[in-house]
Nucleic acid binder design. Structure first.
Lengths: 250, 250
DNA sequence: CGCTGTCTTGAGCTTGTTCAACTCCTGTGG
DNA sequence: CCACAGGAGTTGAACAAGCTCAAGACAGCG
């Protein structure tokens, strides 16, 4: 049996009482898990189609860029970043993934992962072995329907993120970034106003298309304006409306 | 029967001999059309599931933002832009769609279109009435598999576009934009080095997150450097490698 | 206790925006 | 058919945002 990873925040780095696990019913993989009746004893689904709560050490990768696609992962606890390694100089950060969110979806069509997924902290994931789905003996139709829903959400999400980021300045991007993380956490039933930005400032900057110095300066500015409280990687959103007004100056 | 729209470029605006139609086998909707055997007489697929080659006048919309999702469209000829109307001041351009490309995919999950799709020139589309797909009498499994493939490609595509645009400066964005259009055209069997940018400079700028003046200046610069030849909306890519080296300065 | 990598802060410089003038199409109506 | 009005595109100059380079601060870890 997989023991849930204990709190590994031994240092002052992380002040919250980790690990926070997402509930199954708030997880992006849940629609498919439901179909598989995985929780039921005697579901008849063979081992290996859905692997639950696999521990992943900090810095470990779920898959490497260009690797053959086999599975979609859902973050159970912890967090991940996905990135395309060293295009010229430095990686290109694609996204960050919190509990309940999916990783590897963008590989479904091409059959290979376009990016590497790395754990930002001690984490755990559930793994849905897509290529073995037919073995599950469930009506393909139902599983596929769930997959369609899941992919559709991903399309919509990445459209919103892309247009939001591209057409705004640095201050707006960072405010949107913080609010986006907060919103995603609330959707998964996690604390939405206080959380750990486990990734480095450089990763955030890379993701937002800014310099890390700019991210640093903007975070300081937000703190001085009373919008957030910052202590290393720990963030407390004090004024959601204030952040929102940066993005949409109505 | 729908007559193929005649060339409507009566002015000097467009120098190419339009209309260029994409071949069915190079269209993003083709996997599904294949499944439906739509080309076969006596396929038994009822009218209304797949509507082919519908003419769309310049400026006409396929659907409005917040409209109820019913169909995915494929551009047969002409071109479209998708945008979110007036967030604050000015629209937010999401993307441009050329022959063979799909429109409306991002609405599959939520059930409503997040954006408006407008024809940039006299165009034609094929319409796949998703909600009526079950009436087609084809095995759901096969249709769904095609849909999964289609959604997966869309996810991968928007990830690439988003990260490409966000982390680059104006010059790189515009070069990437031109090469991206060229690449997409070659994938669909259309002329890849000479084409019409039917959208306004303002639309391009909006899409790339730049000011229209900047787009104008950059295009002029590219022309002075011998990378492209520009005549109003007509573009000739003269030096693909040169444009590429702007994006990836290896 | 000191080393190391990340983060912060400062100063000058580059890039892109804004505002404004002007040109060139394009469509319309006389 | 021509003249004119209006929008789109181009170009210039001043300004602002964000980057780069560099130095210093702070936590984490041996």
């Amino acid at each position: 049996m997989n023991s849930a990873s204990p709190c590994v925040c031994r240092t002052q780095r992380c002040l919250a009482e980790e690990p926070l696990e997402v509930e199954c019913d708030a997880c992006g993989l849940d629609p498919i898990c439901q179909v598989l009746d995985y929780a039921e004893a005697g579901s008849g689904v063979p081992e290996g189609v859905l692997l639950r709560r696999l521990p992943v050490a900090r810095g470990e990768t779920l898959f490497q860029a260009n690797g053959v696609f086999s599975s979609i992962f859902a973050v159970k606890s912890g967090s991940f970043k996905t990135y395309i390694p060293s295009t010229g100089k430095g990686d290109r950060v694609i996204g960050f993934h919190q509990p309940g969110e999916l990783i590897g979806v963008e590989a479904v069509a091409s059959g290979s992962y376009p990016c590497t997924a790395r754990a930002l902290e001690p984490s755990s994931v559930c793994e849905l072995w897509i290529s073995r789905l037919p073995e599950a003996g469930r009506p393909n139709e139902v599983v596929q329907q769930a997959l369609i829903q899941l992919l559709g959400s991903e399309v919509a999400f990445s459209h919103i993120v892309a247009t939001t980021l591209i057409q705004q300045n640095g201050e707006q991007r960072l405010a949107a970034f913080l609010l986006n993380i907060s919103h995603r956490r609330s959707e998964r039933g996690l604390p939405e106003s206080e959380f750990c930005l486990q990734m480095s400032r450089g990763d955030i900057a890379n993701y937002l298309g800014l310099a890390s110095e700019t991210v640093s300066r903007l975070l300081t500015r937000f703190q001085n304006q009373g919008l957030i409280t910052l202590r290393r990687k720990q963030v407390l959103l004090r004024d959601h409306a204030g952040l929102m007004s940066i993005i949409e100056p109505n």
